[in-house]
Nucleic acid binder design. Structure first.
Lengths: 102, 102
DNA sequence: ATAATATTTGTGCATTTGTTCATATATTCA
DNA sequence: TGAATATATGAACAAATGCACAAATATTAT
């Protein structure tokens, strides 16, 4: 063994929760969904159209995102509109894109 | 169909690369590894100790992180020291933690 | 050279994942 | 009411994932 120094302080539970947050953004389809909601709410069928994934698959992924509190939804007539739950998600996506684009 | 508005502009390839970036941070063990390197390089055995995961598993994960360019390594004697590859990773982890802590 | 330490690599396996398909529920319209 | 549209849900299944274990490689010390 060798080396020494501090590390980012966080308890095990926080790490698991944080991993789950990143996990939600780690799938191209879910990421595309999040990006589609970047500037405002979108209904399921519109999201399905944008991502070119079946409505069923999109619905499954949206549920996953909602359970993890990355998005929330609002019902209007027979449509359900989804939107990003808070600005942290926007920040993370922006920062990530920045990194990818170097 | 209903709703309208822009979305974050990014081509399919960028989305896949970004998803891969988040994917690397989406596992508790890898995340803990990244956080352990937050303030500086650490050798493999030290990282294994911190994460309480076998040296073998840590090495596998470090390879994954290195391939995805989230970390880089430096050899010194019989030790290999790993460090974060650039500050974007630090930013993302910080932002993520901020979100988790609300 | 041999032993000890540090790290890597290959394989196998149980678990998780994302999708498709079929079906169910909810809302609007005729 | 019944048909049409929008969304959600459950089951099944192939693909990917993370880990343990064993074996290989590399470096240092004796």
């Amino acid at each position: 063994m060798a080396g020494q120094g501090k590390d980012l302080q966080a308890d095990a539970e926080e790490v698991v929760i944080l991993a789950e947050l990143f996990h939600q953004m780690a799938d191209p389809t879910r990421l595309l969904l999040l990006m589609s909601m970047f500037y405002g709410e979108k209904c399921v069928c519109e999201l399905a159209e944008k991502t070119d994934v079946s409505v069923s698959a999109v619905s499954h992924q949206l549920r996953s995102l909602r359970t993890a509190r990355l998005v929330r939804s609002r019902k209007k007539g027979r449509h359900v509109f989804y939107m990003l739950d808070d600005d942290h998600v926007k920040d993370l996506v922006s920062k990530g894109l920045e990194h990818v684009r170097e």
